[in-house]
Amino acid sequence: MSILVDKDTKVLCQGITGSAGAFHTKGCLAYGTKMVGGVTPGKGGLKDDNGLPIFDTVAEAVAATGANATMIFVPAAVCGDAIGEAADAGIELIVAITEGIPTLDMVKATRQVTERGAKLIGPNCPGVITPGACKIGIMPGYIHTPGGVGVISRSGTLTYEAVWQLSSRNIGQSTCIGMGGDPVHGLGFVDLLAMFQEDPGTDAIVMIGEIGGTDEEKAAAFIADKVTKPVVGFIAGRTAPPGRRMGHAGAIISGGQGTAESKMAALREAGVTVADSPARIGEAVAALLGVKG
């Protein structure tokens, strides 16, 4: 009934003793996520406020707890290393929340993740949630409702906006993933669309893209070829000027590539219902599913 994470996912927090790591570990525990421990080099042997064991290395944490997922909050300058450490320790799903990682660090880290057969979400992202079962990240859990719509997005608060529009119409979500705003990142639209297409618990898919890169165009080609479930899309940044980085490191139109128009046209061509307004994403899904708003 979901992809990537469910009620049995055992989660570590790398950077659990930092303020963001500690705060969101508590939030995930409160949501019902199986948090099993944390990692902070030099603090091994201690316990956090919630009584979770802290380890010096991810390898020790995996051996002691059987963790198969991790949520990373370590500072940007050392985050590439933390992602590599998690992949090397055999973690299957790595969720990197940290913003501001140097791009070449991500070029190296994504290679390690691929070599180890792990999956990476992020960095610079809100994380992943299967409503009612498992939340790994910083999104507000209560806006989500269990159900059948898969949500994939490059954004944070814009994803919350879309989820809110769905939940207010009593349309639930199977799994929601914020894949992050960086130019070099882990799982992309195509990987996640493929997973949702295979997932029997997902009936429809919402994908929220933005300017920069060509991920949405590739997603459109994949949808035309392989996706039979209905897809609703929205692309942010139609009014963004070329050559300027719009907050996210990856949100930039350069050399005429990465415009919202090109992405919207490609998605429409592939049969995706593209919402003109960010206020109409929920409405579009309701119409496709035949649900009364």
Binding site: S153, R154, S155, G156, T157, L158, T159, E161, G181, I208, E210, I211, F234, A236, G237, R238, T239, A240, R244, M246, G247, H248, A251, A260, D276, S277, P278, A279
Partner: peptide
């Protein structure tokens, strides 16, 4: 709050006939 929502806000202003002054 948030880069994606900030871009979407500029877009919806334009959609309703206005022009955004900033991101």
């Amino acid at each position: 709050n948030g880069a994606g929502l900030a871009m979407a806000t500029m877009d919806i202003i334009k959609l309703h006939g206005g022009e955004p002054a900033n991101f």
